[in-house]
């Protein structure tokens, strides 16, 4: 059975049931779609150039022309939130993609070969685990300079241990089950065991971890931007916007910080809800 078959056979059934039983999941998915839509199609609909100074009043509240208000330099917040979208979303996606594929590969190698291969890989993973993600990102920035490329790569590495430990434990448990021995005894080839049995068995776990990892990556990258280690101005993501709006908070103009902050929280919340559901599904599949 191929991965495609699993996806084709299961997902519609799940979403149909979900719509009835799990309004929270549906809300999360709708939110994510809406955010994705705004990020992709946003520049077409927004009326202002995100970097146009004094497009409106300084620190203006929400109005018809500026639905989310204007910032301390009179720029349209909606336009800036939309413009900051890709930088805020693509970074975490890259982190998840890299850390999940790399981490799963390391874990599969570890579990499959065992012995000294496992020993060395596990040691490497332990070392990475000992360095907090934020520290690794900061170290990368001090080596390569400000910008999100270095932190994205650093976080992709920093997230390896979580993915790899989980997948390694799952793979070892799976390989220890009698059906794996049965496949061997039948003479089924290693490639077939790996791609037709082992990886499909672990896929739900990997997907669930990917969803949760996205949330963490988004928070960590936004934190790095917030700390002023991200992309230099004028280009800016949500983290930078939150930081730059901080002085206005005390002047009674919270919009500049609050709206991007709300977006970050909403995105992470939605992704976490989806991830939690995938985890439950994964556990149900593997028990």
């Amino acid at each position: 059975m191929s991965v495609g078959q699993i996806a084709a056979g299961r997902v519609p059934a799940i979403s149909r049931r979900a719509a009835k039983r799990d309004p929270l999941l549906v809300a999360a998915l709708v939110t994510l779609c809406a955010i994705a839509l705004v990020v992709i199609a946003g520049p077409l609909i927004s009326a202002f150039d995100p970097n146009q100074l004094y497009a409106g009043p300084i620190s203006g509240g929400p109005s018809l022309t500026h639905p989310l208000g204007t910032d301390d330099l009179g720029r349209d917040i909606l336009a800036r939130v939309i413009a900051g979208g890709p930088a805020s979303v693509i970074g975490p996606l890259v982190v998840v993609a890299l850390s999940t594929t790399l981490g799963s590969t390391v874990a599969l190698l570890s579990a499959w070969f065992g012995g000294w291969v496992d020993g060395i890989l596990t040691r490497v993973i332990e070392v990475i685990f000992a360095i907090p993600g934020l520290v690794l990102a900061v170290l990368a920035v001090s080596m390569f300079g400000k910008g999100l490329v270095a932190p994205v790569i650093a976080l992709s590495i920093a997230y390896l241990p979580v993915v790899s430990r989980l997948v390694r434990a799952g793979a070892r448990a799976e390989l220890g089950k009698p059906y794996m021995a049965a496949l061997r005894i039948q003479g089924v080839s290693s490639t077939a065991i790996l791609f037709r049995h082992l990886i499909p068995a672990l896929l739900p776990t990997i997907l669930a971890q990917g969803a949760l990892g996205f949330g963490y990556a988004m928070l960590d990258l936004a934190a790095i931007s917030f700390l002023g280690l991200g992309a230099p101005p004028p280009s800016s993501d949500w983290g930078v916007m939150i930081a730059s709006g901080q002085p206005s908070l005390l002047n009674g103009a919270p919009e500049q910080s609050l709206f991007p902050a709300l977006l970050v929280v909403l995105t992470v919340l939605s992704v976490n809800i989806v991830g939690a559901r995938v985890t439950v599904w994964a556990e149900a599949k593997s028990s």
């Binding site: 949330g215 928070l219 936004a222 934190a223 917030f226 983290g239 939150i242 930081a243 709006g245 901080q246 908070l249 919270p254 910080s257 609050l258 902050a261 970050v264 929280v265 992470v268 919340l269 976490n272």
Partner: peptide
């Protein structure tokens, strides 16, 4: 778990 430090801080 969706409330990062910087968001709580600005709020």
């Amino acid at each position: 778990v969706a409330m990062p430090t910087f968001v709580v801080a600005i709020v």
